[in-house]
Design a protein around this nucleic acid. Structure first.
Ligand SMILES: [Mn+2]
Ligand SMILES: [Mn+2]
Ligand SMILES: [Zn+2]
Ligand SMILES: [Zn+2]
Lengths: 137, 137
DNA sequence: TCCCTTATTGAAAGTAATTTACAATAATTA
DNA sequence: TAATTATTGTAAATTACTTTCAATAAGGGA
């Protein structure tokens, strides 16, 4: 049983063909996929998969932190499989290919300074980089 | 003529009461406002303002970098007036109050490391902090 | 292995957000 | 002031997403 299947089981959720299809597609993707894309690709694995189920699967996976939503200037409904732990995202502006990398705490100094200046108490952060991947350069 | 009015003029756009209303509301806001909120508040300044016009104004202002869209886990259509230059956003998770702060280049080292590790060439970044503001603590 | 329970599914309808079409209006500029 | 044309509001259209509900299938226990 793979990791995501265990996570689902432990949460009292069932391992279904539909969920398996969505997960498999996400696992093979190298860029964020939107619900419609997940449906199109998922249909090859599960012929009866429906868009509603894609939405519902994503909602569940997101709750369980199995996937993360990637925000871009216009489009905000792309999903990416999440590696464990706090991560940052780097997206290629040419082909959309995305990589995640662990959030080294290089931000600690910046955050401390911001806290002092603004009076806010910083809890979390979101860092997303945009650039050009090796293949697209 | 205020700065945004000059920016509009120079772009060959007209200064209208509707745009003035949206701008005024944004200027007074201390948290990101969504189109519906902008309409509600803007109607007090321009009685014939419509939602379509709010959308169109935001689109224009965003193109001219006069406003920025603030992304949050679920909601992504809040708009904030942009200060000049590269900025980061810090949002209070209790009251939604937002502040922007200049993007000191503390990220240079992190970015250099990521470029080396991933082969990507990083062009821009997005940093958004979440926390609790002074009043809400 | 076969039930039984109930979580999950798909179809269809419903709601919310955003965009487009188009004729009327108002900002500019000559 | 008059002419030009960008901008507006109304209404309809489109898109994104959610809800409802009866049918189905996962998986725990006999
Ligand atoms: Mn981090
Ligand atoms: Mn920065
Ligand atoms: Zn690329
Ligand atoms: Zn977003």
């Amino acid at each position: 049983m793979s990791t995501w299947e265990e996570t689902l089981s432990q949460a009292g959720c069932r391992i279904t063909e539909s969920r398996r299809a969505v997960m498999t597609v996400l696992a093979q993707a190298e860029r964020p996929l939107v619900p419609q894309e997940l449906l199109a690709l998922g249909l090859k694995l599960q012929a009866t998969l429906s868009l509603v189920t894609v939405y519902r699967s994503l909602e569940l996976f997101e709750e369980l932190s199995l996937v993360r939503r990637v925000h871009q200037d216009t489009k905000c409904q792309g999903y990416l499989l999440t590696a464990a732990g706090h991560r940052h995202v780097l997206i290629c502006e040419k082909c959309g290919r995305a990589v995640e990398f662990p959030g080294q705490d290089d931000l600690a100094a910046l955050i401390a300074r911001v806290e002092e200046r603004t009076g806010y108490q910083v809890k979390t952060h979101w860092l997303q980089l945009r650039g050009v991947c090796a293949e697209c350069q």
